[in-house]
C-alpha cells in the first residue's frame, strides 16, 4: 500500500493505493489521527487506486469520519472502485459517508 498526503487550500487529501486491509490500516489510522488534530478537520480520502478493502479498513474510515465531525469538519471519500463501492452499499456505509466519483468533485463540495 502507498499513502500520500497533499493539501488543497484548507483541505487535506489522503491518497491510498493498493490493499487497504488489516495489515495496512494502522498506517492510515495514524495519518488520519494526525490530520484530524486541527479544526476544522477537512479531509478527502482518495481511493481511486484502492483495489481491496476489508472490515478493518471500514472501521478505520468510520473512526476517521467521527474524528473529523468531532472537530467541526468532514471526511469525504472519492474514487471508489465498483467492487469496493458495493461493500459500502452492503454495509450501508454509503449512507454514512459522502462519496464522490472523483477528487475534483469532493474538493468542490468543500467550497460550497
Amino acid at each position: 500500500m502507498d499513502l500520500t498526503i497533499r493539501s488543497e487550500g484548507n483541505v487535506t487529501i489522503l491518497e491510498i493505493s493498493g490493499r487497504f486491509d488489516n495489515r495496512t490500516a494502522p498506517a492510515v489510522a495514524e495519518e488520519l489521527e494526525k490530520v484530524t488534530r486541527t479544526e476544522p478537520a477537512r479531509l478527502v480520502v482518495n481511493m481511486t487506486n484502492v483495489s481491496f478493502v476489508d472490515s478493518t479498513a471500514l472501521a478505520t474510515l468510520v473512526q476517521g469520519l467521527k474524528r473529523c465531525r468531532q472537530r467541526r469538519g468532514e471526511l469525504y471519500l472519492c474514487g471508489l472502485q465498483n467492487q469496493v463501492y458495493m461493500i459500502f452499499e452492503l454495509t450501508r456505509l454509503d449512507k454514512a459517508f459522502t462519496i464522490f466519483p472523483d477528487e475534483a468533485n469532493a474538493l468542490q463540495a468543500f467550497e460550497n
Binding site: 472490515s55 468510520v62 461493500i87 452492503l90 454495509t91 456505509l93 454514512a96
Partner: peptide
C-alpha cells in the same frame, strides 16, 4: 448481525462473509 441502520466501527467482518 450488525444493525445496519447504525454506523459501527466493528462487526462487519462475518456479516460480509455470510452476505457474500
Amino acid at each position: 448481525k450488525p444493525d445496519l441502520d447504525e454506523v459501527h466501527e466493528h462487526g462487519y467482518g462475518l456479516f460480509l462473509v455470510h452476505s457474500l
